[in-house]
Amino acid sequence: MLNGLRVLVVEDDPAIATDISDLIERAEGEVVGPVGSLREAKQTVRTDQSIDAAVLDVNLGDGDITPVLESLRARNVGVVVYTGSSGLPSGVGERHPDVVVLQKPVQPGRIVGEIQRARRTVGTA
Rank of each mutant, 00 (worst) to 15 (best):
V106T: 15
A17L: 01
R120K: 15
V79E: 03
R119I: 00
T66Q: 12
A54G: 09
R95D: 01
P34H: 00
G113C: 03
P97S: 12
D57N: 12
Q103S: 15
T121Y: 10
R75E: 01
S90C: 01
T18V: 07
R39T: 15
E28Y: 14
V80T: 11
L23M: 14
E70D: 14
P89F: 13
P97G: 11
V10P: 00
P89E: 13
L69D: 00
A53W: 00
V81H: 04
A41H: 05
G4F: 08
L8T: 00
K104M: 04
A15S: 05
H96K: 01
P105M: 09
G93C: 10
G84D: 06
G29E: 03
I16W: 02
V55P: 07
T121L: 15
P89Y: 12
L38P: 08
V35S: 05
Q116R: 14
V45C: 08
D62S: 08
V7D: 02
D57C: 08
L60E: 09
S90W: 03
T83Q: 08
P97V: 07
R119N: 15
P67T: 09
D98G: 10
R26S: 13
I115T: 06
V81E: 04
R110D: 08
G123L: 12
R46M: 08
P67D: 07
P67R: 07
D22M: 13
V58M: 09
R75P: 01
S71E: 14
E94M: 04
A118Y: 09
V99H: 02
I111D: 04
V79C: 09
S86H: 12
G109T: 09
G4K: 10
E40N: 14
V58A: 07
E11H: 01
R120W: 14
V79R: 02
L60T: 05
R39A: 15
L102T: 13
V32L: 07
V55R: 06
E40R: 14
K104R: 10
V81Q: 07
